[in-house]
Design a protein around this nucleic acid. Structure first.
Lengths: 151, 151
DNA sequence: TCCATAATGATATTAACTTTCATTCTCGAT
DNA sequence: ATCGAGAATGAAAGTTAATATCATTATGGA
């Protein structure tokens, strides 16, 4: 049985930072706090602009580097939809999921399927492929946009 | 029962071109011929460089526009792996498949699973989501690279 | 408090993608 | 066969996101 102990994301951040010999900064904590609160799938630019209002002087480069660090730590997940732009969502403490993305309005519905994951694992095993991560995305029309079009 | 009639890709190209009021050019035919022969997942740049040798004077913009057109027609599929660069593979007449991508050597193994597709369809239906296309990718280590690392 | 070193932010650079525009080519009408 | 409207082309410029550089600032252990 697997047990996950969920701690405050900021504590995990500090712990990860210390164990890597890095330093704890207001910018890093601010970005984590923001992402933990803001649900959704945000681009670097969106994160930058939103935070810049509260913390003038914040630089794009810091957002870029922090978001990369958080991905390594496992606090955020990078997702890339049809437009090819990298987006980030807060992942810590949330179960894995994949997305259905509406090509009209851009909304990203989440789904998860243990049955699919099992089949996936079996397929990988048959090829001796060691899966590190995966992404499974469906692109199409959400209920709302499909309704509009068919009228 | 669904029947697919597979014709020469060049004929499909000409037919699609005509039905759209576009014009048939040597460049377009050359790109289709090249892609139909070259198996694999090629970037625009790779397509451009390979073809440029045979056909000096060919421009990047033409490759860009043609590849976009071919995607609309359904002759090629765009796939985007971990590096975020768009790649194209010849799709016409080939069954749908997804990929396992080795993060070390970059090889892309193909897989397909009707069982997964069925589950996927069911999940989408439950949300009234109309799937246009999907991608399902596993990133990790292929058998060869996993073997090297564990030694 | 000191100070080695990590982090920051402005800016420059890179890389892929996309648009612009003057010229060339295609193809149906003649 | 040739004409001509409009599509296609290719060089170059523009755009956008991602990444690197570097002088300056901030962190945290000694």
């Amino acid at each position: 049985m697997k047990v996950n102990i969920i701690m405050d994301p900021l504590l995990l951040l500090r712990q990860s930072i210390k164990s890597r010999g890095l330093k704890d900064t207001a910018q890093r904590e601010g970005i984590v706090r923001f992402l933990a609160g803001a649900k959704g799938h945000l681009t670097q630019e969106e994160i930058f602009k939103a935070l810049r209002e509260r913390e003038p002087g914040l630089g794009r480069a810091t957002v870029f580097r922090t978001v990369k660090l958080l991905e390594e730590i496992g606090l955020v997940t990078r997702v890339t939809f049809a437009d090819g732009v990298a987006r980030y969502e807060f992942a810590y403490g949330r179960p894995h999921h994949d997305h259905m993305i509406c090509v009209t309005c851009g909304v990203a519905l989440e789904f998860s399927s243990p049955a699919i994951e099992r089949l996936q694992t079996r397929l990988a095993k048959a090829r001796n492929f060691k899966v590190r991560w995966h992404r499974h995305e469906m692109f199409g029309l959400c209920a709302r946009c499909a309704g509009k079009n068919s009228s």
